[in-house]
Amino acid sequence: MKEITSDDVPAALGPYSQGIISGDTVHVSGKSGEDPETGELPDTVAEETKATLRNVETVLEAAGTTADSIVSATVYLTDMDDYDEVNRGYRSYLSEPYPARTCVEVSRLPAPISVEITVTAELDDGR
C-alpha cells in the first residue's frame, strides 16, 4: 500500500489517509467541498457536490489518475431531500458511463457540510 496526500485539499480531520493506492486502484477517503484555502463552502448543495468532486479529483491526480477513472462512489448526505441537487452537481462534473454509486442519508458528518464523497478509482497504466 502507498499513502497519497495533497496539500491542495482540506486536511484530514482524523487518523486516516487522504488516499491509499492498493494494487491497481486508489481509494480516496471521504472528501468535502470546503475550499482548501478559505475553508468556505459553496452556497448550494449542487455546487458543494461539484467542489467535493474537485477535491476528490485532486487526490486522484496526486495518485496519477483522474475522475474519469472512478469506478465506484459513496455519497453521504445529511438530508435526502438534497438528492436531486446532488445529482445535478454530480452529473455536471462526471461523465458517462457514470461510476457505480451508493447514496445514503446520515444524521451527521464530521464537519458542518451537507455532502461527503468517497471513491475507488483505477490507476492509469502509465503511472
Rank of each mutant, 00 (worst) to 15 (best):
M1G: 14
K2H: 12
E3C: 08
E3T: 14
D7S: 15
A11S: 14
L13D: 03
L13R: 11
G14A: 14
P15K: 14
P15E: 15
P15C: 08
Y16L: 13
S17K: 13
S17D: 14
G19N: 07
I21H: 09
I21F: 03
V26H: 03
V28A: 02
S29G: 11
G30T: 05
E34G: 07
D35W: 06
E37T: 03
G39F: 09
L41M: 03
P42W: 03
D43R: 06
A46W: 08
E48P: 03
A51G: 05
L53D: 10
R54T: 14
N55K: 01
V56W: 01
E57P: 07
E57W: 05
T58E: 15
T58C: 10
V59H: 01
L60K: 08
L60T: 05
A63E: 02
A63H: 05
T66N: 11
S69D: 06
V71I: 15
S72Q: 11
S72M: 05
T74L: 11
T74F: 00
T74M: 06
V75R: 00
V75L: 01
Y76E: 15
L77T: 12
T78M: 00
D79C: 04
M80D: 12
D81M: 07
D81L: 05
D82Y: 11
D82K: 05
D84T: 08
E85L: 00
N87R: 15
N87E: 15
R88S: 13
S92R: 11
S92P: 03
S95C: 00
P97C: 08
R101L: 07
R101G: 05
C103Y: 13
V106L: 13
R108V: 04
L109D: 09
P110V: 09
V115F: 13
E116H: 07
T118V: 15
V119I: 13
V119N: 02
V119C: 11
A121R: 08
A121P: 10
L123M: 14
